[in-house]
Amino acid sequence: MKHLKHLFGIALMIMATGTLYGCNLKAHHPETASLVTTAVVEKPAKQYVKIALLLDTSNSMDGLINQAKAQLWDIVNEFTHARCGNETRPLLQIALYEYGNDNLASSEGYIRQVLGFSEDLDEISEKLFSLTTNGGEEFCGEVIQTSLKQLEWGKNADDLKMIFIAGNEPFTQGKLNYKDAAHNAKENDVVVNTIFCGNYEQGISTEWKNGATLTGGEYMAIDHNRQVVHIETPYDDVIIQLNSKLNKTYISYGYLGAQKEAAQVAQDMKANEMNKGVAVKRSVSKSSRLYKNSKWDLVDAIEEDEMEVSEIAVEDLPKELQGKSEKEIKEYVEDKKEEREKIQKQIQDLNIKREAYIAKNQKEETGELENALLSAIKNQAAKKNYKWD
């Protein structure tokens, strides 16, 4: 009997620790919790939202690519405010594939991994802007299966893992049956959402809806050639000006420093070339917790304990810090950190006013792709106990 009680106690402890962390947090009874007060429970270091974008880059898809470029920042800004059930702020990773393009290798099924899962928002933007279109064969099942095999989806059941595949040809093309790919996705807790670029009923008849339903995902049809409407607000120019000041708070270091600092400015320019609205949304993303650059920026590196000032070789420091003492460098970094936080707060405050202005003056829905992505994301996140504040 004594052994049975001991085993029962262990079982209760395992059950409690299994639900203590993660987005599927469930309430547990105080009497159960008391049994585990002496247990050492390791919280998962990080919680992830993993989104793989599989984009058709055949001839007819220029409009889709333009929408993706314009609306990347809407996804980022949405997850800035997300919390898991245990109040953890999830990290966002985005991967990018292109398919259906004659410039791609036929031996690879006209499929290319443009970018594996990345948290580097400048890199994600750069890769999106690098996409070009050309005619080709569009194998939906094969590109889904390829993304499942190549990407690091992880084993954490509380991570939110989603594929969004967009295109306009029958979902059944190619040698690999899309149903097999969907089955593999479901086994790996990956939800496949399908976005048909064309008539809603046509997408159903060409199996796009079924491709989503098999994994519990959502089917959507969009007008991929629709122009993204931007409502100008009195706050746009000020936010963009603040973004320029924000860039000056970055302290590049190491072999990546100058290259990544230039990339930051280049992606600002790309966004601005699309329209002012995209530039503003990117600026708002850069003021959020999801825009981190610890691999090349000294402020973020020290903040995230990835680097100590004493560890940096003199030649890896920017010229203005070479010859400075460790104390002087730390003071300089701290000043830049405070300046950055102040600017980020100003952008966030202005964005609240901007969003209120848009809500009051908006007469029609926003971009087609944006609506499709955000709707599916919110619905699937709710199933894993995500919430927004």
Rank of each mutant, 00 (worst) to 15 (best):
H6D: 14
T17W: 01
A27L: 12
E31S: 13
S34L: 14
E42I: 13
P44C: 12
K46S: 15
A52N: 11
L54S: 11
D56Y: 00
L64M: 11
Q67K: 05
L72C: 09
F79T: 15
H81C: 02
R89V: 14
I94S: 06
I94A: 07
A95T: 11
N103M: 06
A105M: 08
A105V: 07
A105P: 06
I111M: 05
R112K: 15
F117T: 10
E119M: 15
E123Q: 15
L128Q: 10
T132C: 00
F139C: 04
V143G: 05
T146M: 12
E152I: 00
A157T: 12
D158Y: 08
K161I: 01
G167P: 11
F171L: 01
Y178S: 03
K179W: 01
A182S: 14
H183F: 10
A185N: 07
Q202A: 11
Q202M: 10
N210K: 14
N210V: 01
A212M: 03
R226W: 00
T233D: 09
K245N: 12
L246T: 04
Q259K: 14
Q259G: 00
A271F: 06
G277L: 05
V278E: 08
V280K: 03
S283R: 02
S285P: 09
K286H: 11
R289C: 01
S294L: 00
W296R: 03
L298I: 06
V299C: 06
D300Y: 09
E306S: 04
G323K: 10
S325W: 05
I329G: 08
E334L: 14
D335W: 00
E341H: 13
Q344V: 02
Q346R: 10
D349H: 02
K353G: 07
E364K: 12
L369G: 03
E370F: 01
N371S: 13
I377S: 04
K378P: 00
N379Y: 08
W388D: 06
